[in-house]
Simulated assay, not measured.
Amino acid sequence: MASFTPFSLLFLLLLQYPFLSLSSNSEGNALHALRSRLSDPNNVLQSWDPTLVNPCTWFHVTCNSNNQVIRLDLGNSNISGILGPELGQLHHLQYLELYRNELSGKIPEELGKLKNLISMDLYGNKLEGRIPKSFGKLKSLKFLRLNDNKLSGTIPRELTHLKNLKVL
């Protein structure tokens, strides 16, 4: 049986730490990637520091007791830019509040990966293109507000399978 000195145990822990850090901060990495796509003239995102262990101390981010991001509340924040696929990595997200900003571009298909999402408020932006069919996978979704954008096309048939959807 091998014996370890305190130094060798510390060395082994330090070798593993970067991997633990990366996995525990995946939500922070996703939010920081979003931050890099946005223009923020009022500095509402100034607390978003990617070097922290997790984003639970950031303004406009709410976490549960397990330090998992459950709410992103940037409604009426005067931010602009495009939404990226990284938002789909926020697997525990329940509320996505991005209403009344200057967001443009297409709505990412990856938002359809947010299985715990209860409410998605993207209204009052400049989003364009179609509503992603992947939204049909959001079985927990109750509120989907996309009005006052530049969306085109029909509402995807897949949304008719959302039994909990109360507001569209």
Rank of each mutant, 00 (worst) to 15 (best):
L13G: 03
S119E: 15
N125C: 00
V69N: 02
L14H: 04
K137W: 08
Y99W: 15
L52Y: 00
L87F: 03
N149C: 05
G75A: 12
K133E: 14
L12Y: 14
C56G: 07
K106C: 02
Y17D: 05
L103S: 01
G112S: 06
S23R: 10
V53S: 13
G129A: 00
F143V: 14
I82C: 03
W58S: 02
Y95K: 05
L168C: 11
Q16K: 01
L20Q: 11
K139I: 06
M1F: 10
N66P: 02
G75D: 02
L87P: 10
W48F: 01
E97F: 12
Y17N: 05
K150W: 09
P108C: 12
I131G: 08
I82N: 09
P156D: 00
G124W: 02
L127G: 08
F135E: 05
T62R: 06
Y17M: 05
N101F: 07
N78E: 08
L127R: 01
P41F: 07
V69R: 05
Q46V: 12
G129S: 09
L14Q: 14
Q68R: 11
D40M: 07
P18S: 10
Q68H: 08
K150M: 08
T57N: 15
N25K: 05
L52R: 11
L38C: 14
R157H: 08
P50A: 04
L20F: 12
P132C: 12
N149W: 01
L52W: 08
N101M: 10
E128R: 07
N76S: 14
V61P: 02
L10A: 14
S23H: 12
T5M: 00
S36E: 13
L52A: 13
F19Q: 11
I155W: 02
S152N: 12
G112M: 09
K113F: 15
N76H: 07
L138P: 08
G124T: 03
L74S: 02
N76A: 13
H161Q: 11
N76R: 06
F59V: 06
Q94P: 00
E158P: 09
L144R: 01
S23A: 11
T51E: 04
S26C: 06
P50E: 03
I79F: 05
P85S: 14
K106V: 07
I82Q: 12
M1L: 12
N42M: 06
S152H: 10
R145W: 08
K126A: 11
V167F: 15
S39F: 13
V44D: 06
L96S: 06
N125V: 03
K126G: 13
G153I: 04
L146T: 08
L10Y: 12
G75V: 00
N29Y: 07
H60T: 02
